[in-house]
Write a protein that binds this DNA or RNA. Structure first.
Lengths: 116, 116
DNA sequence: TGCCCTTGGTACCCTCTGGAAACCATGATG
DNA sequence: CATCATGGTTTCCAGAGGGTACCAAGGGCA
């Protein structure tokens, strides 16, 4: 029994809060095939604002999930890339994303049945 | 290529937003072994307030992930139970929770290294 | 006949984050 | 000298998250 995650003071909960964030999930999926620049990420992840994307990337870098590499060029270039730790997170996250894709119809049907 | 999840108007994103919520994750894990009452859930999931738990359970019921069964008793009794759809979500969520447990040390180390 | 107990929530309030839009520094380029 | 592109930052605002107090409906008990 791994009830650890239910203790609000347990580190596992902190991690769950972080990686449970929808933007973090989408960043991991966006970077699964290699490094990307800030603007590429912003364009790839529809609906994210630069402020929130910056916050998300900074937090993920702080947690060792990705690296931030700044090139001394003009115009500036910054590349984000998953660390091995971040890459190891891809499989579980992909499993959740796959679930969402496969069951979206059922969920939407239930939602509409409840609403209407 | 399953880039669907990156379109903000894609239903998959809506689902991802819902099940990505940390309380939903913990509710699924709490109910994986059978039905539970409101108070049991509130006590099992440390730190959740009744308001937020109610919101979460109502939304999950609306999405067909769990059922809400009210017994006409006094004091009132309400049982929440995962539907088959909700149970199918357990495996992917458990994978993420397992990842968190296995890598919490690495993340905490990275976080402290960045802070200090 | 009151009084308290339990459960499953609501109501109220307040903070704090998520998001929208505007702005900025740099230097190459026309 | 104006323009353009990048990778953000700043400001402001609404709405969600969260804390605390309270409520309704009986049953048991004194």
């Amino acid at each position: 029994m791994n009830g650890d995650a239910f203790d609000p003071d347990c580190p596992t909960r902190l991690i769950l809060d972080r990686i449970g964030d929808k933007w973090s999930v989408l960043v991991v999926l966006s970077l699964r095939n290699g490094p990307r620049r800030f603007t590429e990420l912003r364009d790839a992840i529809g609906g994210v604002t630069p402020k929130v994307l910056t916050q998300t990337l900074r937090a993920m870098a702080r947690d060792g999930l990705l690296t931030r590499h700044v090139f001394a060029e003009v115009p500036p270039r910054v590349e984000y890339e998953l660390t091995p730790l971040g890459q190891s997170l891809h499989a579980p996250i992909q499993a959740v994303a796959d679930w969402a894709e496969h069951h979206v119809n059922e969920v939407m049907a239930a939602r509409e049945a409840a609403t209407g």
